[in-house]
Simulated assay, not measured.
Amino acid sequence: MTTSTDSHPFPINTPIVLTIAGSDSGGGAGIQADIKAMSATGSYACSVITAITSQNTLGVSAIFPIPRDHVESQLDAVFTDLNIVAVKVGMLADSTIIQVVASKIKQYQPKFLVVDPVMVATSGDLLLEHSAISTLKTELIPLADIITPNLPEGAALTGSSTPETEQEMSAMVDELRALGAKAVLLKGGHLEKNENSNDLLILNETTTLISAKRFPTKNTHGTGCTLSSAIASYLAQGNDLIDAVKLAKTYITQAITHADELEVGNGHGPVHHFFAWNQAEKSDAQQ
């Protein structure tokens, strides 16, 4: 890949990654977090907005799903012009939107599809209608190269109770495999008593532990969006699935570790997507 220059912040032939998700007016999650994460990890981000949320670090006060025909026209606009290598799917709000997204993925067949089955915000607000979960499972998940549920989402997808231990996480593996995605990253971030944040990368034949030191902070808004976007970005850049997941895990861990350097809002603040740039600027200033 050609090295970037000051006049060209992205390398020539930078892989293009599409995020299909909802807008977070607070800027910490959703489309806004996706674009930040894709940009920070070296890809060019484009977007299709599925819903507009009235949201801040304290919670979600309103959700306006984008009409189906406009979601469809956005998808056609980007796919017919841009060379999209990878797609990340986040908040889809309802069954109608899920169906149109699945249809367009089948039509345009991007090389990689990462599905983050967004159902509940960090604040606890519901972001996906319960009636839409079955549509997600039948229409979209089987198309995915990888899905990235957290523990409550994994429980919702399998109809089981939310795991409270790593043993209970492991007990979900077969049911998650049966959903039909090529791989599943079951995120263990909700096991807050654990010293490490342990995820399970579930492939057809193997399960791999992806672990990182846990950093204590309340500023974790947008972690799932950020991680899945980074995976899509690294896949688009030519990494294999396991390496893309490991690179994305390292990136989100650092973004969480530096989250308290930001002062945004009064609730669950965002992670620090551009920690590396800030560190570089500080280093330059000291020289």
Rank of each mutant, 00 (worst) to 15 (best):
I146F: 02
L209A: 11
L247I: 06
T50W: 04
L128C: 05
T162V: 15
E281V: 14
S233P: 03
V101I: 13
T226E: 00
L200H: 01
L203G: 01
L18G: 08
A51G: 03
Q55S: 06
K187Y: 11
L209I: 12
S47W: 02
G224M: 04
I49Q: 05
N204T: 12
D174V: 08
I146D: 06
Q286L: 15
D260F: 09
M119K: 09
G90R: 06
G28F: 10
G154W: 06
N198K: 14
S23P: 07
V48R: 05
A40Q: 13
F79D: 07
K187W: 11
G224F: 04
S160K: 14
L151G: 03
N278C: 09
N204M: 02
F274Y: 15
P9C: 07
G59H: 04
M91N: 00
V115C: 03
L128K: 08
T135K: 10
Y108W: 15
I35S: 00
T257P: 00
Q107Y: 02
A121V: 09
L157F: 04
Q32N: 08
Q109V: 11
T3I: 13
A51V: 15
G265K: 11
M38G: 00
D94W: 02
S283Q: 09
T207Y: 09
K249R: 13
A178W: 01
E166L: 14
A62M: 06
D34H: 01
Q254F: 01
S73E: 13
D81F: 14
V264Y: 10
D24V: 09
A171D: 11
S39Q: 11
F10W: 15
Q32S: 10
I231A: 07
T96C: 05
T207A: 10
N83V: 05
K213M: 11
Q109L: 09
R68W: 04
A37T: 08
T207D: 04
E195K: 14
A230W: 06
S160F: 10
S123I: 05
E129C: 05
P11A: 09
D240K: 03
T253Q: 11
D76F: 13
A144S: 12
G124T: 08
A86E: 04
I147F: 01
D243H: 14
G22W: 14
A232S: 13
T19G: 08
S160C: 12
I16K: 12
A276K: 12
K88W: 03
I20W: 02
G224A: 08
A156R: 07
G90H: 06
S228M: 06
D94C: 14
A77H: 10
H8Q: 11
H268V: 02
I52P: 02
D145Q: 04
V245T: 05
G124A: 10
A244K: 06
